[in-house]
Amino acid sequence: MNTNGHEPIKKVSIIVSRGSLDGVYPALIMANGARMEGIEATLFFTFFGLDAIIDKRMDNIKVATVGNPGMHLPTLLGIIPGMSAFATSKMKKEMEKLDIPPVREFITMIHDAGCDIYACKASVDMFHLKKNDFCKEVDDIIPVGQFYEKSAGAEILFT
């Protein structure tokens, strides 16, 4: 690893706070990439980011076509029914070409790679969720204090 003389990164803690496709994937790619480089990784899902680990929702993560200037789509077109589903399916096809797996498969792969996966207790309580609402890869539901404990020595990334 070429680190230009700097100490290499040893550990990352990645917070996922958004539940859109573009909110979820960067964090998953970074967590997986960290493990591929031998860097310890922890994923902490909070607020709408929880959708990526909720068993009934994780297969329906969609790209936002409204309020998303990066889509280069006029807002009035973005609101057309089916537009988000269409954009999502197009994007998923492109991702498949790059070997980027669907959310569920990706979460399994990352967890099998040794990345710990946690849900934020405050958000879980706020949305009235329980441990069995989540996919089996979720290690625990933890409060923010414990997140910081587990992040000792890590670079914390908020996405």
């Binding site: 997986n32 493990r35 070997d99 980027i100 797996p101 399994t108 792969m109 099998d112 790679a113 040794g114």
Partner: peptide, 17 residues
């Protein structure tokens, strides 16, 4: 990629690591 290794090499992620 690690994904293709996992899916096609016959060796799963956990074992790969």
């Amino acid at each position: 990629s690690i994904r293709r290794l996992t899916k096609e090499s016959g060796v799963e992620t956990k074992e790969l690591y």
